[in-house]
Write a protein that binds this DNA or RNA. Structure first.
Lengths: 113, 113
DNA sequence: ACCTCATACTCAGATAATCTTTATATTGCC
DNA sequence: GGCAATATAAAGATTATCTGAGTATGAGGT
């Protein structure tokens, strides 16, 4: 079965589509894009970034140091963009299949409890 | 963060929308609805059905015995229909957000590698 | 001076859904 | 006789994510 991307991973990629961002910036962008519905956990995020980097979906853009604290910026690779595009298409298809089935059920008077 | 439903779970619920089905029937319906893209594993399926039953999203419709082998039919509860509807809406929103971001990127000439 | 909040990252341990594999059993086809 | 399809169950492994703690700085409030 087509390996499903998990939600946090999906939002990380989506947050990086328009520009390179550092960890905290990704968390904020994901929250903003989802109208506050998505709150990425720090532990999830950095683990996922390591994994996505190893898989070649994100690359390290550059490192900065601000007030003695390091900041690492990440960006999508071409593979990352392609993966997100594929995933988006899959989500659309899944949603429309379920929608169609749900609509068909409604026609029938909703017998089941 | 809104607890994300995993794909196999999503397909099990979708396969049960129109009628009660037994395990093997669910596997076939999921394959059919997804044009062969989804192949539910038996181990995943029965574990998920137990879980979904415990959560009240699916109910046992009835048991049959065919050739000495038991067959258990499952159906969606109202809660199951509602959960699938919610999940479908979420998928649509997620997909359209990612779509919008991807489209915006395309405008910019795709600088990043 | 002290506290809290926002920023920014790291790591250890637990949880939970899924996957893999194995087992069992019958029917029908070649 | 053996293999594929039907049909379910259960043990063991994998893995992404979550929880929670730790480290550290600067700004704003009391």
């Amino acid at each position: 079965m087509a390996k499903a991307m998990r939600e946090p991973t999906f939002w990380i990629l989506t947050a990086l589509v328009d520009q390179a961002r550092h960890g905290y910036g990704i968390i904020q962008q994901a929250a903003s894009l989802s109208d506050g519905q998505v709150t990425l956990q720090a532990g999830t995020l950095y683990a996922a970034l390591d994994r996505l980097h190893a898989e070649g979906l994100v690359a390290i853009d550059h490192d900065e140091t601000v007030d003695g604290r390091p900041r690492r910026y990440y960006r999508l690779t071409r593979g990352g963009v392609a993966a997100l595009q594929e995933e988006t298409t899959r989500l659309e298809r899944n949603a429309s299949t379920a929608s169609r089935q749900l609509a068909a059920r409604r026609h029938l008077g909703e017998a089941t409890a």
